[in-house]
Amino acid sequence: MNIDEKIKRELEQQSTEIDKILAEEQGIGDFVLGSIRNSLKGWFILINLIVIVVTAVMFWTGYQFVQAQVVEQQIFWAVWFLASLIVQVALKQWIWAEMSRSSLIREIKRVELTMERSVKSLTN
C-alpha cells in the first residue's frame, strides 16, 4: 500500500468520525454541565447563586418602584432597579463567556486527540 492510499483511507475514516461528532447536537444543559465540570466550577456556581439573588433584588426594586407614591421614591427605586439589571446582565455575560470557553477547550482537545490518532496511524 503506498502513501496516497494510506492518506485517502485515513481521510475517509476521519470524515466518518467528524460526521459522528457533528451529529452530536449539544443543548444548553450540556453547556452548563460542561462549565460546572471545568476548572472554574466554584466561581461558576457562585456567580449563578449571585445571579439568583440579584434577580430577586431586581424584582423587589421593580415592585417597590410600581408601589411608590412619591416621585422621589420612584426615582430611588428606578435607580436601584437599573443598577441590579446592569449587574445581572454583566454576570450573565460572564456565565455565557465561561460556557463558551469551556466548549471551545473541549473542541480543541478533540481536535488534538484526532490529530494524534491520525499521526499514529500514518506512521504505522
Results as ranks from 00 to 15, higher is better:
1 M>E: 07
1 M>V: 14
2 N>H: 06
3 I>Y: 09
3 I>A: 07
3 I>V: 14
4 D>M: 11
4 D>W: 06
5 E>F: 03
9 R>Q: 09
9 R>I: 09
10 E>M: 05
11 L>K: 02
11 L>D: 02
12 E>A: 09
15 S>W: 01
17 E>D: 12
17 E>W: 07
18 I>R: 02
18 I>L: 00
20 K>H: 12
21 I>F: 07
23 A>D: 10
24 E>T: 08
25 E>D: 13
25 E>V: 07
26 Q>E: 10
28 I>T: 12
31 F>I: 08
31 F>Y: 15
32 V>E: 01
32 V>T: 01
34 G>W: 00
35 S>W: 03
35 S>I: 00
35 S>V: 02
35 S>M: 04
36 I>L: 09
38 N>I: 01
39 S>K: 13
40 L>Q: 15
41 K>N: 14
43 W>V: 12
43 W>R: 15
43 W>G: 15
43 W>H: 15
43 W>S: 15
44 F>G: 00
44 F>Q: 00
45 I>H: 06
46 L>Q: 07
46 L>K: 11
47 I>H: 00
47 I>G: 00
47 I>M: 01
48 N>Q: 04
50 I>A: 07
50 I>R: 05
53 V>T: 03
54 V>T: 03
55 T>K: 05
56 A>M: 02
56 A>K: 03
57 V>S: 08
57 V>D: 06
59 F>C: 06
59 F>L: 14
60 W>P: 04
62 G>N: 03
65 F>G: 06
66 V>K: 11
68 A>R: 00
68 A>P: 00
68 A>I: 00
69 Q>E: 15
70 V>C: 13
70 V>R: 15
73 Q>P: 11
75 I>D: 05
77 W>D: 01
79 V>C: 04
80 W>I: 11
82 L>V: 09
82 L>N: 06
82 L>R: 09
83 A>V: 12
85 L>W: 06
85 L>Q: 05
85 L>A: 11
86 I>N: 08
88 Q>W: 08
89 V>D: 03
89 V>H: 05
89 V>S: 06
90 A>N: 05
91 L>I: 03
92 K>D: 07
95 I>R: 04
95 I>F: 00
96 W>T: 13
97 A>D: 14
97 A>S: 15
97 A>P: 05
97 A>T: 08
98 E>K: 14
100 S>K: 14
101 R>D: 11
101 R>G: 14
104 L>M: 12
104 L>D: 10
106 R>C: 07
106 R>N: 12
106 R>Q: 14
106 R>P: 06
107 E>Q: 10
107 E>C: 13
108 I>D: 04
111 V>M: 05
111 V>Q: 01
112 E>D: 08
113 L>P: 07
116 E>N: 15
118 S>Y: 00
118 S>N: 02
119 V>C: 09
119 V>S: 13
120 K>L: 10
121 S>D: 03
121 S>W: 04
123 T>M: 11
123 T>D: 13
124 N>P: 04
124 N>M: 09
